[in-house]
Simulated scan of single mutants.
Amino acid sequence: MKFDRFDRAILQALQHEGRIPNSALAERVNMSESACLRRIRQLEESGVIEGYTALISQQKVGCPVNVFVNITLDRQDETDLRKFEDAVRKIPEVMECYLMTGDYDFFVRVVVADTADFERLHSKHLTRLPGVARVHSSFALRTVQKARELPIR
C-alpha cells in the first residue's frame, strides 16, 4: 500500500501516542478533523491499523524475564506445523512465535517470572507441544533495544 505524507504522519503519531484525540492529531498532521478521521477509518478498514492496545510493563506485572526458545520438530509437514502452531497459541507466556528457516523450525519468545517459572513452562508446556524433537533456550540478560514503532516509509 502506498502512503502519502498525511498517512505517514498519522501512523507515526498514532504509534507514538495511540490515545491522542482526533482534534490534536489533525492539528499535528495539518489536516481538518473530518479529513483526519476519514484517513484513520481508511487505514483501519484496510487493515494497516490492526487495533489499539496499552503497553504493559513486564516487570510490574511479574514476568520480567525474556527467554528466547528455538524449537525443532520431528517432521515439518503441513499437518505437524499446524498442530504445533495451534498448541503454541494456547500458552499465555508465549509472546511471539515465528516459523523459521535454518537450523530450527520455530523461534519463540516467552516471558516468565524467573528460572523456576521457566522450568515449569519448559517441562509442562514447551516440551509437550506436538512434534517437538529439541528445545534450545537462551535467557536475555538485558533489553538493549525494544522498538515499539514501525518505520513508516
Rank of each mutant, 00 (worst) to 15 (best):
D114E: 09
A87W: 13
R89T: 12
I10P: 03
I40A: 00
S46L: 09
L43K: 02
I20W: 05
A147M: 14
D77P: 10
V65R: 00
M31A: 07
T101Y: 14
V144F: 14
M95P: 11
F107G: 07
V132K: 09
E93T: 12
D77T: 02
N70A: 12
D114F: 12
D114I: 09
L11K: 01
N66V: 06
P21Q: 02
D77F: 11
S138N: 10
R28I: 08
R28T: 09
C97R: 08
F106E: 06
R120M: 07
L141C: 11
V110M: 13
L121D: 08
D80A: 11
R75A: 11
V61I: 14
V65E: 08
A133D: 09
P92G: 14
A35H: 08
I20M: 13
A13Q: 03
V144P: 01
Q15M: 13
F118E: 02
V48W: 03
Y104G: 03
S137E: 15
T143A: 12
R109W: 10
L121W: 08
T115R: 04
E17D: 08
F118I: 08
E27T: 03
Y98W: 14
L73K: 04
P21M: 04
Q59G: 00
H16T: 05
R41Q: 11
Q58E: 00
R19S: 09
Q145S: 11
Y52I: 04
M1E: 12
E93C: 14
R28C: 03
E33I: 14
A24R: 10
D103T: 12
A13K: 07
A54K: 05
A26S: 06
V110I: 15
R8D: 00
V88M: 05
S138L: 13
N66H: 02
R89Q: 15
R82I: 10
R148Y: 15
D77R: 00
V67F: 06
A54P: 00
D74E: 04
L55M: 06
R39W: 01
V111W: 10
N22T: 06
R89N: 14
N66L: 07
M100H: 10
E93Q: 15
L81W: 04
R5N: 02
E17T: 09
L73V: 05
P130M: 05
V112M: 06
M95I: 14
D105M: 13
F6Q: 00
R75K: 10
E27D: 02
Y98I: 12
V94A: 10
E33A: 07
G62K: 03
L141Q: 12
C36H: 04
V112Q: 06
K60H: 03
M100V: 11
S138C: 09
L99Q: 12
M100G: 10
A113K: 12
R39K: 09
V48N: 03
G62F: 09
Q15L: 06
Q145L: 15
V48I: 14
P64D: 00
K90I: 11
R75D: 10
F68A: 00
E17F: 10
A13N: 02
D7I: 06
E149I: 15
T53P: 00
L25H: 05
D103C: 08
I56W: 05
Y104S: 15
N22D: 02
D4K: 01
E27H: 03
P92V: 13
G102C: 13
V67M: 07
E33W: 08
